[in-house]
Amino acid sequence: MSAALDIFCPFDAVGMNNQEIRHGFFLRYVLDPARPHGFGAECLRAFMWSAAEATQDDPDGSLKALDVHLMNLDDAIVDREYKSIDLLVQIPSEKVIIAIELKIDAMEHSGQLRRYRRIIRDEYSVSKGWRQLFLFLTKRGDLPSEEDGKGWRSLPLDNVVDALDRVATKGSGQPEARMMLHAYVAMLRRRHLNDQRMEDLARKLWREHGEALDYLISRKPDLSSDVMQFLADRHKDIADRLSGSLKTMIEPEHSAKNELRFGFADWDSIPGMLEGTGWNPSKRLILFMVKREPKSGSFRLQVYLGPGPRERRQALFDSLKAVGARVDGKWGIQESWRQLVVKDIPAPVDDEFVEGFAEKLQAEMQNFLHSFFALYDTAMKRLVEVVT
């Protein structure tokens, strides 16, 4: 098992895997056609294709795959931290400006997206012929906040990883640069995207060394982490409580360190519901999740439409829209992840108790689910009726 974890990675060596600033440095370098990596504009074009693919269902989307194919990107300028914007891509010859906000394990800060959007609209105005694109790059294409994220488009990290991987495997670029790009893609998949082999190794480590790992975790004071562990220890009890409150069967799902997942068992008979891929053992396409943000300690309640056959995902999404169910964001299902409903919960304050905050969070979970579940249930049952 040690050999399986004994993988040299230059990005892990410099502590980059969870450092958004360092991700920004590397992405700026490979996306910039003027840098001496030998890729030219290939990485930037691949990135823009991934953005066009992710936003293809967005009625307000301003970037299409054909546009990207025909663009001259050789004069592109890529800046990092321009007026605090993580990445800014300027293509003067095409009059295109792209603002990118990168969130690996963090959530957006209050007002930042609105502020960045105002900067771009003032400095690269549509009236002067500029086409503007605002991309919110996260692990699973999380939606930006409704209040501050107007105009921002959700871009899942796996779309970008797949695009860069295609560039790395083509054999273009300088050998050293190609090796680094391969290592970067591998690190992202290993650390941030679904990797079943690593999940299996983690479970084996917990089985064999659970006491030692528990001891180490117990020595790291973190109130929100303690709350998450408290909830995880009561995963089934919480599912039972939610089931009773909603009068439907909710089951605990395989979860991750900072994610607690639940499935809606009464929807399993819906055509295609159990055809999800690469996400959870139950293969359910729709899950409810409680996510902890490690840096801020805040929590996010989310309902996700996960990866699976596009026609199945589209049918579920269309049924929700048809009955007027709440679906946050104005775009379609995207290629893999679609966050359907979201609510942010501030981090516990220092003088709160674990049990008290956990109880408050469970009450928030119930209220959150009650706010949309009736119409979601109607939409799901409607699909069963159509088939029968």
Rank of each mutant, 00 (worst) to 15 (best):
I119P: 06
Y376M: 12
P252I: 00
G111A: 10
A358Y: 05
E53S: 11
A34D: 12
V68Y: 02
E335T: 14
M365A: 15
A358M: 11
I97C: 04
G244D: 09
D58G: 09
A379L: 12
Q229C: 04
V342L: 13
M180P: 02
A13W: 08
R80P: 15
A265N: 06
L188Y: 08
S218D: 05
L164S: 06
V227W: 01
L383N: 05
V68W: 04
V78S: 09
P309S: 13
D60K: 14
R22S: 06
M273S: 10
M380P: 06
F47V: 10
D240G: 00
G278P: 08
K236W: 00
W130L: 03
R313K: 13
L133I: 11
W331F: 07
D266M: 03
Q112R: 10
L201I: 14
P348D: 02
Q302P: 06
L73P: 01
F136I: 10
L340N: 02
E364G: 13
L375P: 03
A3S: 10
S245R: 10
S269K: 08
G151K: 05
S145P: 04
E253L: 07
D158A: 09
R35E: 15
K204N: 04
I120Q: 03
A106P: 06
P92L: 00
V161D: 08
W331K: 05
P252T: 00
G129H: 04
V78L: 14
F368I: 14
Q90N: 12
K220D: 01
F353E: 14
R300P: 02
Q132H: 06
K247Q: 13
K291F: 06
S172H: 00
W152A: 04
E53R: 14
H182A: 00
Q196G: 00
H109E: 11
A358E: 08
E352I: 05
H182L: 01
F134D: 03
V323D: 04
E123V: 09
R219W: 05
H109A: 08
L137A: 08
H37M: 13
G276F: 09
K64G: 09
R313P: 05
H109D: 07
L70K: 15
N159Q: 12
D32L: 11
M380Y: 10
S336D: 12
L375K: 15
A3Y: 03
S269F: 01
M289Y: 12
A46M: 10
R22Y: 12
